[in-house]
Write a protein that binds this DNA or RNA. Structure first.
Lengths: 233, 233
DNA sequence: CGGTACGTTGAGTCATATCAACCATAGTGG
DNA sequence: CCACTATGGTTGATATGACTCAACGTACCG
């Protein structure tokens, strides 16, 4: 559940300078600033649920969110992550459909919620913004297709190696090479698309092969080239 | 390789009335009409290749096209199909990147190729068109995510059943219930994401279970509800 | 201090991939 | 016209990756 939170100034927001929002005029920014709500969500809270109706999109200021679909037997499949600067929920807003995925906080978040009609109006009246948003959705589409091919063709072993490298690339690692994003084994399994036990076994194999080091949920990359080789990238 | 083909009149084109293009003004349609090239491609020909540069998008008038990615070991993964009224290649045009998939003709095609800058201009200057295109890409994104979850979580058996129903839904069946779209076993395997031999075995199991009937490449659906049950949809 | 969630390991099973052989068909060239 | 080749389809035997189930360990939290 979100806590109310003092509204962040859109004018000085970090996402202001990023691709998507950089073409907005001052008055358009002001329009968003007037209508948005800034909220705080802590780890574990759900921003929106699959099959629910979303009344706006979320702009992530801080924190990390996982976006996932729930399969037939209740197992989650993590589709992607959102981090500061990313927006989520825009798909459902634009297509005016129920959400086709759920989103849950992995690291405490501050998000700004912007009403649907503002997004639609921006698309209609600011061509450059529309183009940027299209680029964004096309980028996601390309990533989804690549991921799809990986899951269909690669082994769990290859995928896990790939995911570990992806997590480093996406969320970074500290000075010791330890991945910054902390995930449970189950969450890892829900990205890779395999069983939790399989992830555990594979991780310990990677450890034996001196590719990684494990310390609880912390994963330290010892041999990135080795992982890359294993992942076939 | 495409054959040249007498240009189709955009003004009376079937796609003119469909969602994507219905908001275009007469002069915008005229602009497309002046710059497009109509081409004929026969079964097996490639419209564009992964990692090549595309100079425009394709609007399908007639025929069926498969869009696929080529995996590490050369195996194709079919991502989606395009049929009359669909457009392909717009992703690469908008993101201005190399194509991330290839497209090959399954049933003889007539397509209109429209230069990139026309698409970009339409997005920039016609808000309603931009919105429709966004809806389209978001729809594809949603489908890709669903497909992803299916491949990650369902068995090959479930997926094959689902794909058979999808093919009926998407391309129809004749009066006898025979699927109109004819695919090789390998192509089926490349959608389902499994080995060709597995598809063959599963199809013959479905036949034994009186779910379908087989006649060469022709698949006749005998028990759609049974397939639906099996596919968990 | 007990409870809950997560992690680990082992054993057994099953679905699916792989490899190999063979058949059917159609198109090709001498 | 026929051998030749390529492509696709089928089947069987075998291997194995990955799942499931079950038991147990660990750690944190109220």
């Amino acid at each position: 559940m979100p806590d109310s939170f003092e509204n962040i100034q859109c004018e000085s927001c970090l996402t202001r300078t990023q691709n998507l929002f950089r073409h907005l005029t001052d008055s358009e920014i002001h329009q968003i600033a007037l209508n948005k709500i800034t909220q705080f969500y802590k780890r574990g809270s759900i921003l929106y649920q699959e099959n629910s109706h979303i009344k706006g999109f979320y702009c992530v200021q801080k924190g990390i969110i996982k976006i996932f679909k729930t399969g037939f037997d209740g197992k989650q499949q993590i589709i992607r992550f959102a981090k500061p600067g990313d927006i989520i929920g825009y798909r459902s807003v634009l297509s005016n459909e129920m959400a086709c995925s759920s989103s849950q906080v992995l690291e405490n978040c501050i998000v700004c919620k912007v009403p649907s009609d503002i997004l639609v109006n921006l698309v209609k009246h600011n061509g450059n913004f529309a183009l940027e948003l299209l680029k964004l959705s096309c980028k996601e589409l390309g990533e989804a297709n690549t991921f799809l091919t990986d899951i269909a063709q690669k082994s769990a072993r290859e995928r896990l190696a790939e995911i570990i490298l992806f997590l480093q690339n996406e969320f970074g690692s500290d000075v010791n090479g330890v991945l910054k994003l902390i995930l449970t084994r189950e969450e890892l399994a829900n990205i890779v698309g395999t069983a939790t036990e399989s992830v555990i076994r594979l991780l310990s194999e990677f450890k034996t092969e001196k590719l990684i080091e494990l310390n609880g949920r912390k994963i330290k990359i010892l041999d990135a080239p080795g992982l890359k080789l294993l992942a076939n990238i």
